[in-house]
Design a protein around this nucleic acid. Structure first.
Lengths: 194, 194
DNA sequence: AAGCGTCCGGGTCGAGCGACCAAGAAGGGG
DNA sequence: CCCCTTCTTGGTCGCTCGACCCGGACGCTT
């Protein structure tokens, strides 16, 4: 084992944890599995992290930071095509890294029932809603329109759409149906502009 | 412990399992916790179930059977109000038994990564889509309209809406925002009629 | 080259897990 | 009445888990 600074080791372990959770499921995410995946002895773990919870918190943050960025999407000329572009961009990130969303969902699910981790799920969804809101504001600005519904509500709807479509896809892996649904949602949401 | 037929015991254990999962989270759903909740000795478990997986399968089936039934919803005069009625009826079942959806979602999540349980999640979502489709057909018939999108796609959208809204609500427990989102979705989906 | 803070790693502890067993109690049918 | 199926029960096995300890190796500083 090469000698490596602790912060770097932490990063390695977080990455290994992601791979384990993605490949074998959240239930298989044990300290032993993480260390084995990282090719490190078991005791490394509690040298780098005070507890497993600390790893989970960092794993969430790390995975969230790779989140979809709406400001890099090339918007269309009108609201409808812009919304499609945003949702399709989200979807392409899901397809590119099909493991990220399941891991994030499992982390949310886990955090909801784990004392001391609840706020992780809350911050996760605050970030989702912030992202959706930013995308909506960007579209309104670019296409020179105003939304006829309160922005927070539209943002919630958009997060619900992406979450819902993703969840169904996780189960049946019907990518075509997922993309169709997202496109149709883009059309329906576009109706809420003036 | 009173003497009780095995099938009845199974039912008791499934109910106890639901209470444990609802109260303490899916991670706390152990054979010991279930038996303790049912007030039964541990060995009862493997007398009634061949394995823990068998309990989980039955728990899913049992919980699904209490699912929302769209045929009992009083539809409105037009598509928009009918859709609102259906979604609001779904939401009221969520509010009445706020534990059911989290348990079902955790079961789905677990089934996705557990060999031999994957088909449970698939059947779960087939049931969801069937239910949504039935509701949409009922609305079309009652309001004498036709949908301008393929029924399977609309059904998928509806399931995505309910799942997405429910998921966000599990995190922030903002019931008002959830209901607003559902109402707005009803309005947008109603646009897809001729 | 000596010293010291940083990092490695084998080994282990107690708790909790799913699964199982053998013995015993209940109770209905012959 | 006894027997035999059905159900109950305490105990325990083998395993994995998170957490931890401590001796030792590294390598930078002085």
């Amino acid at each position: 084992m090469p000698r490596v600074p602790a912060t770097e080791r932490r990063r390695q372990l977080v990455e290994a944890a992601f791979r384990v959770a993605a490949r074998d499921g959240f239930g298989a995410l044990t300290t032993r599995a993480v260390c084995a995946e990282a090719g490190a002895p078991l005791a490394i773990f509690h040298y780098c992290f005070a507890s497993k919870q600390e790893l989970l918190a960092e794993l969430t943050e790390q995975t969230m930071s790779a989140l979809f960025d709406p400001s890099r999407v090339e918007l269309g000329p009108d609201v409808r095509s812009s919304l499609r572009a945003v949702l399709r961009a989200y979807w392409s990130t899901v397809q590119e890294e099909p493991q990220r969303e399941p891991v994030l969902m499992a982390l949310t699910q886990h955090a909801l029932h784990e004392p001391g981790l609840e706020q992780i799920a809350v911050r996760q969804y605050e970030a989702y809603h912030r992202t959706a809101r930013a995308a909506l504001e960007l579209i309104a600005e670019t296409c020179a329109v105003t939304w006829t519904l309160p922005l927070p509500r539209l943002a919630r709807m958009m997060v619900a759409v992406t979450d819902g479509v993703t969840l169904a896809w996780l189960v049946d892996r019907d990518s075509a149906a997922a993309l169709e649904a997202l496109d149709s949602f883009a059309d329906t949401l576009a109706a809420h502009t003036l």
